[in-house]
């Protein structure tokens, strides 16, 4: 690989790269498992530099943080906009069985992509009921786009203000990055959550009329606003 880019692993692990080189290096890492491994070990090393300067914060901080935590909603493992996190594993399993059945039905109607999606369905992680409800909605429409070699298809229900995104053949990202979905409106861009590591249908909710659905590569855990150019932007036609 490019020796020059590769030497940036140290600066990357120290968070010492300027933004343009940061993006270049993260792109490079997607094709360089060795760099990714090296970065991981250097990150662990940097964490030791942090542990060696530890110092207790003011004691009053803990109470403040804990009360904030009580009011702060956690991100879902896959979709930021996902609904009911309280559902236990058993509930989710049942829900995703329902989803699988609906997906199989939908495959006949909307094409072969769904067959793949069904194969890829990850019972633990899919917010099944909501996805099933979107796919079963009477007003769904389907939009596809190429993402390099891959395909992204959105099944959108204006009535449910939700869309299910199914991808096939997306390039695997290094551990330091995630695919993030965005709802791109006329005057603001909202995160619609991260894509799961294993390909599985992803749910985006709270879609407004005129929104488009974008996909970007972001640092792991996602960003508040997109930091890279979208790989694909899918229109979500409401009529």
């Amino acid at each position: 690989m490019n020796e020059n880019v590769h030497t940036l692993s140290g600066a990357y692990a120290l968070d010492a790269l300027p933004p343009d080189e940061l993006r270049a290096f993260e792109r490079h890492m997607t094709q360089c498992p060795d760099c990714e491994r090296e970065v991981r070990s250097l990150r662990e090393t940097a964490a030791r530099l942090a542990a060696s300067v530890q110092q207790a914060p003011p004691p009053s901080l803990k109470g403040r943080v804990l009360s904030e935590v009580g009011r702060t909603r956690q991100a879902s493992p896959i979709v930021a906009a996902a609904p009911d996190r309280r559902a236990g594993p058993r509930g989710r399993l049942t829900a995703s069985r329902v989803t699988a059945a609906v997906l199989a039905l939908a495959a006949v109607l909307t094409g072969v992509l769904f067959l793949r999606a069904q194969d890829q369905l990850d019972a633990e992680r899919v917010t099944g009921e909501r996805i099933a409800a979107v796919l079963a909605a009477p007003d769904t429409r389907r939009v596809s786009a190429r993402v390099g070699e891959a395909t992204a298809t959105a099944i959108y229900s204006p009535r449910k203000a939700s869309a299910v995104l199914v991808t096939a053949g997306m390039r695997e990202l290094p551990a330091s990055q995630d695919y993030q979905l965005w709802l791109i409106g006329a005057d603001e861009i909202r995160s619609a959550g991260l894509m799961p590591e294993e390909p599985a249908p992803v749910l985006a909710t709270s879609i407004r009329a005129g929104d488009r659905l974008g996909i970007t590569i972001e640092p792991r855990g996602g960003s508040r606003q997109p930091t890279t150019r979208p790989l694909a932007v899918l229109p979500l036609p409401s009529s």
Binding site: L42, E44, T45
Partner: peptide, 22 residues
Amino acid sequence: GTVKTRMRDGLIRLRDCLGVEA
């Protein structure tokens, strides 16, 4: 170029000295 190279080989040496496992 020297700075970025030293950052990398410095961290690698530190990693090996600390016995950090990736």
